[in-house]
């Protein structure tokens, strides 16, 4: 199959719309005019690349990458999966960044005021680059749920934030991973910005006993899908290609 065509159109009915009043902050931060659509040019079909050389040994180990005088408190987990495109192919050499609260639901951030304590041994950020088959993995502490100012009693389900680069700026994506079986998922106004229940289930990582390390860490499997690309077989080639 020959690659090189435009990226498939984003399904705006699958993604959350900009204006979602149940998530109050979106009210003044949502564009109100129609988006301007145009076919990808080379500006959107290219994107930054990151070599494996930028990745330090502990970058994908949140249990150790901020440890000062011991290991962080909480349930040890491995998160693994593949970055795929919509054609089902693994996306290699793709930078994946992740951040999260600690086991008590507290972020290491100046503006965070939740009463749960900071963990002196937990920073809450990591990154990795996908392998040839699009696979990635990291080790961390299962994050806690936390309350947030929206309604008088809104809580976020346990989640991990992901930032993903594909091979093109058109594929740039930020999303969140939830945990199988968490009843808080269905009570969260941010989750509820996604109109399609199936889309929410696709963001929910499955408990993966086969990849669990016995007597050490449980595993969750989380695949991430980026936009796929048309074949150029029947499309005019870009100049110079």
């Amino acid at each position: 199959m020959s690659d090189g065509g435009s990226y498939y159109q984003r399904d705006r009915l699958w993604h959350p719309p900009a204006y979602t009043p149940g998530y109050k902050t979106s009210v003044t931060r949502s564009p109100q005019r129609a988006l301007l659509s145009f076919d990808n040019s080379i500006s959107e079909m290219t994107g930054p690349t990151f070599g494996h050389s930028i990745i330090g040994e502990l970058d994908n180990d949140l249990i150790l990458n901020f440890a000062k005088d011991g290991e962080p408190i909480g349930q040890r987990i491995i998160v693994h999966g593949r970055v795929l495109d919509e054609n089902g192919r693994g996306v290699p050499n793709c930078l994946v960044e992740f951040w999260q609260a600690n086991a008590g639901g507290r972020y290491r951030h100046k503006k965070e005021s939740y009463l749960a304590p900071l963990d002196p041994n937990f920073g809450g950020c990591g990154r990795t680059i996908t392998g040839e088959d699009g696979s990635y993995r990291f080790r961390t502490i299962q994050p806690g749920a936390y309350p947030w100012p929206n309604g008088p009693n809104d809580w976020r389900p346990a989640h991990i934030h992901f930032s993903v680069f594909g091979h093109a700026f058109a594929q740039r994506l930020i999303t969140q991973m939830y945990f199988e079986g968490d009843p808080m998922i269905w009570k969260c106004p941010i989750v509820a910005t996604i109109p399609d229940r199936e889309a929410i289930e696709r963001l929910t990582a499955a408990l993966d006993m086969n990849n669990t390390v016995p007597m050490d860490s449980r595993a969750y499997k989380f695949d991430i899908v980026l936009r796929g690309r048309r074949s150029t077989l029947f499309e005019n080639r870009m100049e110079g290609n």
């Binding site: 498939y8 984003r10 399904d11 699958w14 993604h15 959350p16 998530y23 979106s26 795929l84 495109d85 919509e86 054609n87 089902g88 951040w99 972020y107 290491r108 951030h109 503006k111 965070e112 920073g123 809450g124 950020c125 934030h161 930032s163 994506l173 930020i174 999303t175 969140q176 941010i190 989750v191 910005t193 996604i194 399609d196 199936e198 889309a199 929410i200 696709r202 963001l203 991430i224 899908v225 980026l226 936009r227 796929g228």
Partner: peptide, 15 residues
Amino acid sequence: LKESASQTAGPYVHI
């Protein structure tokens, strides 16, 4: 496959 749905970067994207 369907593209993974986007979610807000949230208040702590800088972390």
